[in-house]
Amino acid sequence: MWNILTQKELLLTLDMDRQAEVRETLSLHGIDYRIHTRNLQGSGPLGGEARKTGGFGIDQSCTYEYKIYVQKNEYERAKRLVSL
């Protein structure tokens, strides 16, 4: 069962290719994971600059933040697999 008490953050990255690689590795080894994706250009008191400027000069490779979580009992195994 997934909840805040049973999961642990495995990875935080801005790299879309890296998060895809990690997700594939976890899937291949049968490790269940959850991913939280956040748009760093989103609306809010400090976000939303892309709407004002049209995104000119913004590095599009760093506009999303990816957090991958695994169950605490799978964390050590997952960490070994993705650190290779």
Rank of each mutant, 00 (worst) to 15 (best):
R23V: 10
Q7M: 05
G30K: 15
G47K: 03
S27Y: 12
C62I: 05
Q60G: 03
E9C: 10
E49G: 01
G55L: 00
V82P: 07
G57S: 01
D17V: 09
C62L: 07
L84T: 03
L12C: 14
G30Q: 13
L46W: 09
E65T: 07
L46A: 10
E21M: 08
L84E: 04
L28K: 13
S61P: 03
Q19R: 15
N39S: 13
F56S: 01
K67D: 07
L12G: 13
K72A: 04
A78Q: 08
Y69W: 13
H29I: 15
A50G: 04
Q19Y: 14
Y66P: 05
K72M: 07
D17N: 06
Y33Q: 11
T53L: 12
G55V: 00
A78N: 08
I68L: 08
K72P: 07
D59R: 06
P45W: 03
K72N: 06
R80P: 06
V70P: 06
S27L: 11
E24W: 11
L14E: 09
G48Q: 02
D15S: 09
Q60W: 01
Y69H: 08
Y75E: 07
Y64S: 08
G42T: 09
H29T: 14
L12F: 14
L81N: 11
K79C: 11
L26Q: 14
E24L: 10
S61E: 09
Y69G: 05
S43R: 05
L26E: 15
R23N: 11
G44M: 02
G55P: 00
L81T: 15
I68W: 06
Y33P: 04
Q41V: 13
N3M: 00
Y33R: 10
G48C: 01
Q19N: 12
G42M: 08
Q60H: 03
I31D: 11
L46K: 10
R18W: 10
V22M: 06
L84D: 03
I31L: 12
R80Q: 08
L5S: 01
G44F: 01
E9T: 14
R77T: 02
L11I: 03
H36F: 11
I4Y: 02
L11G: 02
I35Q: 13
V82Q: 12
K72C: 05
A20P: 12
N73L: 08
L14K: 09
K79Y: 09
R34Q: 12
T13I: 15
E9W: 10
K52D: 00
Q71M: 04
W2N: 02
R34C: 09
A20V: 10
D15W: 09
Y66M: 07
I31H: 14
G30C: 13
T25V: 09
K52I: 00
S27K: 08
G57T: 03
H29L: 14
I4D: 04
N3P: 00
Q7G: 05
K67R: 06
D59V: 05
D59A: 08
G54Y: 00
G47H: 03
Q71K: 04
R80N: 05
L28A: 13
V82N: 12
